[in-house]
Design a protein around this nucleic acid. Structure first.
Length: 799
DNA sequence: AGCACGCCGACT
DNA sequence: GTCGGCGTGCTC
């Protein structure tokens, strides 16, 4: 007898452990850990993952596995191991960790049907049910629920054995299939006997072109299914259904590219990384290169080496759909060896890309955060571009950081991990300084061009001098100049922590969301006010609800408003505006960038999404409007983010022959992150910021855990928060610091009050134990859904 | 999470 | 005496 430990797809604490099932004989040697199965669980059926195969079980009664869903495991041995590591380190259920590794298409969909037990039951059934099941003998539960007058009559029929419930587990996956036609043996004699010209055409076509899809045959020969069917019936051809891949990049013509010559700094970095790959050393390299220093080319050539050895590579890029230019570079270098995974793909497309990896049909995957789980088994290198990006941290369970996963997998495979950035996180840079990571510095731009000249304009002064527009005199002049020279301009609107809120000029009243403690945002297109947290929407009032004054206006600068200002100040300029509104349609993003690249516009105006990765030779001016809006967020990383953002945006200017200029507009020009962005001196910024981090006990000197507590009852939230902080203070070592409880910066979302506390620690042996105990203590209450407690290690946000 | 089981009040 | 409400506890 062999048994399987199965982890079922039910994410609650009580089922967060394996259950044993008997493996039926027919599956004996076929079943392997990492495969998905369907098992009976209580009265229903659920999907589960086989964790292990074993010869014995301690139970006296076990059920049999009902079905095996995979031919090969969807989770490799490595990923199974990694899952338990993630569950342990982020305090999530094991099943959640595994779910996070797989494409959504593979997730189970549960259905419940009601059917007649036998044809003889009609007399016994109540008329209502007899009618319902007279023609259709099997119906979906939800359908029955809505058609029937009372659920109880169905339940009684089930008890009496007239009806029964059947549980079904389906795959969300939709493999895209295609019917293909192959020619069987057709003798010339047979051909003579075929009178239909269409059938003859088909055979002719197949003889010329070999295996062909039904679709193509029909299109090319302008025929229907019927002659094809006849040929199949007479066994001249065979039709089989095969799986095909959707190609999200079909039609985009990609030219093959060749390795570019490396400049000295690039070569040094390249050689270091390649040597640790060849020596099979798990080293972490920080590739610290200024914008335009050619980091991507280093990635490409190191990957080339990895591929030469028949090994595989993972490349993470922040939210990749936003940088089609980068995807293009990988596709053009490695062609069909590349799979691309990002959020812009449909569920089916993601699944197809994932299948290519699983079947080892590709060697390189380029993707966003979750691509770190690519099921490669022969990894040679892992690259994380723009290492400092916060999108690498998942903000829902499991709250993992892709960088940590990369390090874990690098260790498992004994391969190097490369972290690339012009503005690495302080944590990473500090490790490189200490020699924990290898530091590769690239301080020169490949084109030998200088970094762009950056000027900071004090907007307070502009205001004092009577300039009330969004453009300082300097930026205005420079825009005019570029427009005349037919050079291009990027205008960046820093909107983080910024929105167009509504305020009464007379009494100062601002309109807030009734369910969340945030101001509502004004939306121009339908004159509405919307809450960005819960979706609440209302009309824009004509009068102040508080003092009835007419002077109620919206404040803040949206991209729309900037666009209007541009057309007013520079009527001849052609503008492309990129923000969430204009790029939500699929492919809109790529299209707009292409237009700008072709010179169809003079100004590209946008938010964060235009800050990185873009490379347009004709851009010689970058303007940053309101540089400091990200500076005053209640977050210790605000300075780091601002500096990083300004550096990245500045890097968009003058990347090729023409030198670039940057104008940064700010109300706090004396702030060090803005002052240092002017010289783009990362080291100076690092040293300055480290002083602050040290004295305030922030990372990289301390690790952080953020515990958030929320509930609809404020008193309950306060009580639980105080209990938790009290417990932490009592049970953690006195070297750790516990802050709070305090109300979260956004104190209420969706009618839930939110409190938080923070643990700062350097080394805390009791940490996991204590946090687990807290989770267990409140488990009953959190299960009911009223109370929520989330624990976030190394949080990126404190909102 | 679902689902059954069981206990209790309400109503034919 | 039955129906349906919800609290409790289990699922190999």
């Amino acid at each position: 007898m062999t048994y399987a430990s199965v982890l079922v797809d039910v994410s609650v604490r009580q089922t967060d452990r394996p259950f044993d099932y008997l493996i039926p004989d027919r599956w004996h040697d076929a079943i392997q850990p990492g495969m998905r199965v369907i098992v009976p669980f209580g009265p229903r059926k659920v999907q589960g993952f086989v964790l292990a195969i074993k010869e014995t079980t301690s139970l006296d009664k076990v059920k049999e596995i009902e079905e095996v869903l995979d031919v090969m495991p969807v989770l490799t041995e490595e990923l199974l191991l990694l899952g338990s590591h993630i569950a342990q380190k982020t305090l999530c259920f094991l099943i959640s960790a595994y779910q996070a590794m797989l494409p959504t298409a593979i997730k189970a969909v549960y259905k419940k049907h009601v059917q007649i037990t036998s044809d003889e039951v009609y007399e016994a059934l109540p008329t209502e049910l007899a009618q319902l099941f007279s023609v259709v003998k099997r119906r979906e539960w939800t359908e029955v629920e809505s058609l029937v007058s009372k659920i109880s009559i169905v339940q009684r029929a089930i008890k009496e054995g007239l009806l029964e419930i059947e549980y079904e587990v389906k795959n969300k996956a939709n493999k895209k299939t295609e019917r293909v036609v192959s020619l069987l043996k057709v003798l010339d004699e047979d051909l003579k006997n075929i009178s239909s010209p269409q059938q003859k055409d088909i055979i002719e076509y197949l003889r010329m072109n070999g295996q062909t899809s039904v679709k193509e045959l029909k299109e090319f020969l302008q025929i229907t299914d019927s002659p094809i069917k006849t040929l199949q019936k007479n066994e001249f051809i065979s039709i089989e259904t095969i799986e095909v891949y959707r190609d999200p990049y079909v039609g985009s013509d990609i030219e093959k590219s060749k390795p570019l010559p490396l400049v000295d700094e690039q070569r040094v970095a390249y050689e270091h990384i390649v040597s640790s790959f060849k020596e099979r050393e798990h080293k972490i390299h920080l590739l610290h290169g200024v914008t335009g220093s050619g980091k991507t080319e280093v990635y490409l050539q190191t990957i080339q080496e990895v591929l030469l050895k028949g090994m595989e590579a993972i490349v993470l890029v922040p939210e990749i759909s936003l940088t089609p230019q980068i995807v293009g570079r990988f596709k053009s270098r490695f062609g069909n060896d590349v799979a691309v995974l990002h959020s812009g793909l449909s569920i089916g497309e993601k699944y197809d890309e994932w299948r290519k990896i699983q079947r080892k049909e590709v060697k390189v995957v380029v993707g966003a955060r979750s691509a770190i789980f690519a099921p490669f088994e022969n990894l040679g290198i892992i690259i994380i571009d723009e290492e400092h990006e916060t999108t690498y941290k998942q903000d829902e369970h499991p709250r993992y950081h892709a960088r940590d996963i990369a390090v874990w997998r690098g260790e498992y495979h004994n391969c190097p991990v490369v972290l690339g950035s012009a503005t690495p996180t302080l944590e990473t840079f500090a490790r490189a300084q200490k020699g924990v990571y290898e530091l590769e510095t690239m301080s020169m731009r490949v084109n030998q061009g200088p970094l762009p000249e950056v000027e900071v304009v004090d907007m307070r002064e502009q205001l004092r001098n009577g300039n009330r527009t969004m453009f300082s005199t300097l930026l205005h002049e420079k825009i005019i100049d570029r427009l005349e020279k037919k050079e291009q301009i990027i205008l960046f609107l820093n909107r983080r922590g910024y929105s167009s809120f509504v305020m009464c000029r007379d009494c100062g009243y601002t309109i807030q969301c009734p369910h969340c403690e945030v101001s509502l945002t004004y939306h121009k297109h339908n004159h509405s006010l919307k809450c960005h947290y819960c979706g609440y929407e209302t009309y824009m009032p004509k009068q102040c609800p508080s003092c009835q004054s007419d002077h109620i206006r919206f404040f803040g600068t949206g991209t729309q408003k900037v666009e209007e200002a541009i057309t007013q100040s520079f009527p001849e300029a052609r503008v492309i505006r990129m923000d969430n509104d204009t790029t939500s349609r699929k492919g809109a993003h790529e299209k707009m960038l292409k237009q700008f690249g072709n010179g169809e516009a003079d100004i590209l105006l946008g938010t964060q999404m235009i800050a990185k990765g873009l490379d347009f030779p004709n851009v010689t001016l970058v303007g940053v409007l309101a540089a400091d809006s990200s500076l005053h967020l209640p977050d210790f990383r605000a300075s780091e983010r601002t500096f990083s953002l300004l550096t990245q945006v500045s890097g968009r200017a003058g990347r090729h022959e023409k030198p670039g200029e940057v104008v940064i507009q700010t109300y706090s020009p004396e702030h060090y992150s803005i002052e240092l962005a002017k010289t783009q001196d990362f080291i100076a910024f690092y040293e300055e910021e480290m002083k602050i981090r040290r004295s305030f006990h922030y990372p990289p000197f301390y690790y952080l855990v953020l515990i958030s507590i929320s509930h609809t009852d404020l008193i309950k939230v306060v009580k639980v928060s105080e209990q938790i902080t009290g417990y932490l203070r009592e049970n953690l070592s006195n070297r750790s610091i516990v802050l709070g409880p305090v109300a979260s910066p956004i104190a209420k979302i969706k009618d839930q009050f939110r409190y938080q506390c923070v643990i700062k620690y350097k080394s805390e042996p009791a940490l996991y134990d204590v946090l687990n105990r807290i989770q267990q203590f409140y488990q009953e209450e959190t299960d009911k859904g009223k109370l929520q407690i989330t624990i976030d290690f190394q949080p990126t946000m404190f909102m």
